[in-house]
Computed example of a mutant assay.
Amino acid sequence: MKKNICFTAIFGLFLVILASCYTPSPIYGTWADNAGNKITFVDDGSYSATVLDSTNTKVFYSGTWVVNGNVLVFSKNNGTSINTEWDLRGSILYLDWTDDEANTKSLSLYHVSK
């Protein structure tokens, strides 16, 4: 009986320690601005984005994302990728988006949902 209680206590302590080590990324969720740009970061490493191009046409992107320090790497489903520095100030995410024609757009996106 004592062995079962001891094992349960040790296992419970292990779970608490393991759960306390996990730190979710602060950029999970949906970020958007009033112009129509929107990026949704999913905790499985995928994203979907709608970004206005140079002619103000909405272009849809999707793929995977990863954070490496202050660099955000978007791998697009078409095989290209974007490496951009990002900054989070309060509930505003700042980053530069490069489209498929190598045009760069600075985005200031507000956190609209988790």
Results as ranks from 00 to 15, higher is better:
88 L>D: 10
114 K>A: 14
78 N>Q: 10
17 I>N: 04
42 V>Q: 06
101 E>G: 03
59 V>L: 03
105 K>M: 14
81 S>V: 05
103 N>F: 04
76 K>Q: 08
80 T>H: 06
43 D>K: 05
57 T>W: 05
102 A>H: 14
13 L>C: 15
29 G>T: 12
2 K>I: 12
76 K>R: 10
82 I>W: 00
64 T>R: 00
99 D>I: 10
72 L>T: 01
74 F>Q: 06
67 V>K: 06
88 L>S: 03
82 I>Y: 01
62 S>I: 02
8 T>K: 03
74 F>V: 08
38 K>D: 07
56 N>R: 13
81 S>Q: 10
100 D>I: 15
54 S>Y: 14
16 V>I: 06
6 C>L: 04
9 A>D: 05
4 N>P: 00
49 A>H: 06
42 V>H: 11
31 W>S: 00
34 N>P: 02
59 V>A: 14
11 F>H: 11
97 W>P: 01
77 N>A: 09
91 S>V: 12
80 T>F: 03
51 V>A: 10
15 L>T: 10
20 S>Y: 10
52 L>F: 09
61 Y>G: 00
41 F>I: 05
83 N>Q: 00
62 S>D: 04
98 T>G: 09
50 T>L: 05
83 N>V: 04
114 K>M: 01
100 D>Q: 10
8 T>N: 15
5 I>M: 14
79 G>S: 11
96 D>C: 06
66 V>T: 15
94 Y>E: 08
111 H>I: 05
71 V>R: 04
16 V>D: 04
52 L>W: 07
85 E>M: 08
43 D>N: 14
50 T>D: 07
59 V>E: 01
75 S>G: 06
10 I>P: 02
6 C>G: 00
25 S>D: 12
107 L>D: 03
37 N>T: 06
29 G>C: 10
95 L>P: 04
40 T>V: 12
31 W>K: 00
68 N>F: 02
104 T>C: 02
86 W>T: 06
27 I>W: 12
96 D>Q: 09
82 I>K: 11
80 T>M: 01
107 L>F: 09
84 T>G: 08
23 T>G: 03
85 E>A: 14
60 F>V: 06
37 N>Q: 11
114 K>W: 09
9 A>G: 13
43 D>M: 06
8 T>F: 15
58 K>E: 09
44 D>Q: 09
84 T>H: 04
26 P>R: 08
29 G>I: 10
61 Y>T: 00
58 K>N: 07
112 V>D: 01
98 T>L: 07
55 T>R: 07
112 V>C: 06
94 Y>T: 08
74 F>I: 01
51 V>I: 15
5 I>H: 13
94 Y>L: 13
108 S>A: 14
81 S>P: 12
104 T>A: 08
83 N>K: 14
111 H>L: 11
101 E>K: 08
63 G>Y: 02
58 K>D: 13
64 T>H: 08
24 P>E: 14
17 I>L: 09
5 I>P: 04
6 C>N: 13
52 L>C: 08
3 K>G: 00
18 L>H: 04
1 M>F: 09
45 G>C: 09
18 L>Y: 02
